[in-house]
Nucleic acid binder design. Structure first.
Length: 636
RNA sequence: GCUGCUGUAGCUCAGUAGGUAGAGCACUUCCUUGGUAAGGAAGAGGUCUCGAGUUCGAAUCUCGACAGCAGCUCCA
């Protein structure tokens, strides 16, 4: 006689084993209608699943995150059936629910193209209309393997599935191997849309064949689907590549694929970020260095970069000698360290370098400013004793947080990556390094994800990831512990007993790359930068030509306070000048006409905040200088 | 690098069935001196990314290159 405990604590008693569907019906008609699946003692199950023993039960409906995920997973099955209809002979590899939707990786006998998406969508609509139940059935491992021995993907999935029972789900005449659970029938997958196509390697392995990945999105209601599509449209407007061009920040040209050309507004922004970090370096006890752009091959062989990344380095040859354009700044620092003599009293040495590096990223890998072939790392190399290591890491983490907090940016996640297969150094070095990083994270009580095997070839690392306008995440700041390079370059310091010891090295970058950082920054603010970073902080708009002289005087006053200001002295109506200023996202527009000239005033509009009324030119200058000094975030 | 897609004026885009191109905005000039998100008129601007091919004829069809977009892989 199962006693069912509901989330609110109420209990229901049944005389015989009952299905989730029956439980839902007992609770209420409306719930039974909405129910997609159940959760029995924390495990998701089909609505048809029968409960025989006492259990805690939740009914899963479309408005719960689990319900939405289920709908998306079921939508993937419906799409798989549709694809098989449109492309008979298609084999199915993998089709999970993902953020905002789902995809299915398929192996179709002929290529699927964009033009086929609407046909797939139509086929899905027909399947949904039939509203066929999802039916689970199970086979023994051996039996399942035999049944699908001609399908390499199913065979593989069966091999990977745990347990002796392999479950399948059927909807009408279509069957797919699946752990489940599913929504009760094909009519219950909500509002959906087939979105796009892409290639995807089987198991994400480049050496395996490439499958076709079909992406879809699904939502509980049409309104939510529309809202999602609208959000995507809105996000496009924040795309840093578009804003970069529209706001005159930077652009790209085929003459230097994957490398940015910066216009003045972009340079002002770039310099703002760079100088800010530079000032913080000073505050945190760093010294700044600069090392050559092109260094001999032998150096890259010693550092291990040649072995690991020669094909991604820009290589040049003169007088029969090979040189590499630097892809990292560290070897330059190592040379400088080695050329000096340091004692334990000198450590830690915090050496910063804004070094411009080049990496030949693959043609499909470059992406606006966030993945480029030439970029400046706000790099630093910290040489310290093993004892100082963890404290130095903590110091780096705090530095990173200081910058992102000031800018009002939130990390998507923080990652600790450990030793990869291809690496240099001993197991012991790696262990000490990984422990130091982990220790620092834990000391500062920072949530992080473990990412095993994803460290740099010379050491483990902590990475700080941020999301762009459409939710793609990018690695920004990084802190990497390196025992290997000091060894390879035979670095040492003199300890208290006058003995030579090996220093540890930390590689750290706060922004990661200034280019990527600015790309994400543009999307984060949608071009409405805090005043201290805005390229053009204020624009003075004259009503008529008669006001130009006074406007220039006000401009001079502002420039004396180190503010970046321009005068819009064109003809035309004030409305048009305001519109231009707003479209270019200028933080402050000040209107100057007869009234202002007469009384030494300006009429001020703050973007995103509106009309501030009249104030004296002096007060205006003071207000802006204050906003710059406090690094205030833009108005909401 | 891989799969699919795209490339027409500075920007956003149209171009029907192969018959050598069009709009809006921006720009220039003139008129307008106008008070809080577009004043009016006229004008200029294109080797339709590049190269081959098919054709009497290619922006349009085919192939290749280059660049870009989405995803995958990679990201020291």
């Amino acid at each position: 006689m199962p006693i069912i405990t509901l989330p609110d604590g109420n209990k229901l008693e049944f005389a015989a084993p009952v299905s989730i569907r029956e439980i839902a019906e007992k609770i209420g008609k409306r719930l039974a209608k909405d129910a997609l699946a159940g959760e029995v003692d924390g495990k998701l199950v089909d609505l048809s699943c029968v409960v025989a023993a006492d259990a805690k039960i939740r009914i899963i409906t479309p408005n719960l995150p689990e319900g939405l995920e289920l709908m998306r997973h079921s939508a993937a099955h419906v799409m798989a059936e549709a694809i098989c209809e449109v492309f008979p002979g298609t084999k199915l590899a993998y089709g999970p629910a993902v953020k905002d939707g789902f995809f299915y990786d398929v192996d179709s006998p002929e290529p699927i193209t964009d033009k086929d998406l609407s046909n797939i969508h139509k086929a899905m609509q027909k399947i949904v209309k039939k509203n066929q139940p999802f039916e689970r059935h199970e086979l023994g491992r051996a039996e399942a393997g035999e049944k699908y021995r001609h399908d390499e993907y199913k065979t593989d999935n069966i091999e990977r599935a745990g347990g002796e029972v392999i479950s399948f789900y059927r909807q009408g005449g279509f069957e797919d191997l699946c752990r489940g659970p599913h929504v009760p029938s094909t009519g219950r997958i909500g509002a959906f849309k087939v979105m796009s196509l892409a290639g995807a390697y089987w198991h994400g392995d480049e050496t395996k064949q490439q499958l076709t990945r079909v992406y879809g999105t699904a939502w509980a209601t049409q309104e939510e689907l529309d809202a999602h599509l609208h959000r995507l449209e809105e996000a496009k407007k924040r795309d840093h590549r578009k804003l970069g061009r529209d706001l005159g920040l930077f652009e790209f040209h085929p003459e230097a694929p994957g490398m940015a050309f910066w216009r003045n507004n972009g340079v002002l922004l770039y310099r703002g970020v760079e100088n800010y970090i530079r000032d913080l370096c000073n505050k945190h006890g760093y010294e700044e260095f600069r090392t050559p752009q092109i260094l001999v091959k032998d150096l890259w062989v010693t550092s291990g970069h040649w072995e690991n990344y020669a094909d991604k380095m820009y290589i040049t040859e003169k007088d029969g000698r090979e040189f590499g354009v630097k892809p990292m700044n560290c070897p330059g620092s190592l040379i400088l360290y080695k050329a000096g003599l340091y004692s334990h009293n000198d450590l830690p040495l915090r050496w910063a370098e804004f070094g411009h590096v080049h990496r030949f990223e693959g043609s499909g890998e470059v992406h606006g400013l966030v993945r480029v072939r030439g970029f400046t790392q706000d790099d630093a190399h910290i040489f310290c004793t093993p004892k100082q290591l963890q404290k130095e890491i903590e110091h780096c983490i705090q530095f990173v947080f200081e910058v992102y907090t000031t800018l009002g940016m939130k990390f998507d996640h923080i990652e600790l990556s450990t030793r990869p297969e291809k690496s240099i150094g001993t197991a012991e070095m790696w262990e000490v390094a990984e422990k130091a990083l982990q220790g620092a994270l834990e000391e500062l009580k920072i949530n992080y994800k473990l990412n095993p095997g994803d460290g740099a070839f010379y050491g483990p690392k902590i990475d700080f990831h941020l999301a762009d306008a459409i939710g793609r995440t990018w690695q920004m700041g990084t802190i990497q512990v390196d025992f290997a390079l000091p060894e390879r370059f035979d670095l040492h310091y003199v300890d208290e007993k006058s003995e030579r010891q090996r220093p540890v090295m930390i590689h750290r970058a706060v922004s990661g790359s200034l280019e990527r950082f600015i790309g994400v920054l543009v999307e984060h603010y949608a071009g409405d930068f805090p005043l201290w970073l805005a390229p053009e902080q204020a624009r003075l708009l004259t009503i008529t030509d008669n006001h130009i002289e006074y406007a220039e005087k006000v401009a001079t006053l502002l420039r004396e306070k180190n503010l970046r200001v321009k005068v819009d002295r064109r003809g035309g109506k004030i409305g048009a000048k305001i519109r231009d200023g707003e479209l270019q996202k200028i933080p402050y527009l000040a209107i100057i006409g007869d009234k202002e000239v007469e009384d030494g005033l300006v009429s001020v509009r703050r973007r995103l905040a509106g009309d501030l009324g009249q104030m004296t030119a002096e007060d205006f200058a003071k207000r802006l200088a204050e906003e710059v000094a406090t690094k205030a975030l833009p108005p909401e």
